[in-house]
């Protein structure tokens, strides 16, 4: 009888287990940050100490975007609202009307960005984003026309085929420094 009672009292009471687990659970709930990092992916050109060689390009193939320290855009010598940038870029690259002053062919188109050291980062990223959006929309349209499917539904080979038809070349020139923050 005595030994039986002894064994009984040696058993750990698991009743508070739930409380302990709840405590830990609440701690982890509070400290958890499910942070998903998303962003605009960019590939930088490798650094070289020598100044890059001047390459002669036909001006009709170059889409130059300048952003000044007041966050204003000058696109191919004309002021432009950032809202119109995407559609204008698309028009320039695809050149559906075969205009004389726009890209001969999407593969030859080149986009050049130049910003000032005083340009707001928000504006800069918006410009970059609009240019990327222009290309992504062209991809979607080309995918629809060629394969009858959206870009996401294509195989990687087909995706590559489309992307090769519209190569994304964004060149960034050294920033000007007229409006540097004091």
């Amino acid at each position: 009888m005595a030994s039986k009672r002894n064994r009984m009292s040696n058993e750990i009471n698991a009743g508070s287990m739930a409380d302990i687990a709840f405590l830990l659970l609440i701690f982890f709930l509070v400290t958890t940050t499910i942070s998903e990092d998303k962003g605009v992916l960019v590939k930088l050109p490798p650094w070289s100490d020598e100044p890059p060689e001047a390459i002669k390009l036909n001006t009709r193939n170059i889409y130059s975007v300048l952003v000044n320290s007041n966050n204003q855009l000058l696109v191919r010598g004309e002021p432009m609202n950032i809202k119109d940038l995407k559609n204008n870029t698309k028009n320039f690259i695809a050149n559906p009307q075969h205009m004389e002053n726009m890209a001969e062919d999407p593969t030859k188109a080149l986009i050049s960005i130049r910003n000032d050291r005083g340009t707001k980062y928000g504006t800069y990223l918006e410009v970059y984003n609009e240019l990327k959006a222009a290309y992504n929309e062209l991809y979607e349209e080309a995918a629809m026309k060629k394969f009858g499917k959206g870009m996401d539904d294509l195989s990687s080979v087909q995706q590559k085929e489309i992307k090769d038809a519209y190569p994304l070349v964004i060149s960034e020139a050294e920033a000007t420094s007229f409006g540097e923050e004091k």
Binding site: D37, K38, G39, V40, L41, V42, K43, L44, P45, P46, W47, S69, N115, D116, R117, G118, T119, K120, Y121, G122, Y124, L125, Y128, N129, A175, S177, E180, E181
Partner: peptide
């Protein structure tokens, strides 16, 4: 988004010099 590009340009140059070319602008 309120930062001016001067310091961002400096960081980009440093990254290029260090050979770190894959970049992500968080947004």
């Amino acid at each position: 988004s309120d930062v001016t590009m001067g310091i961002v340009g400096d960081v980009k140059t440093a990254l290029r010099k260090a050979g770190q070319l894959k970049l992500n602008y968080s947004a």
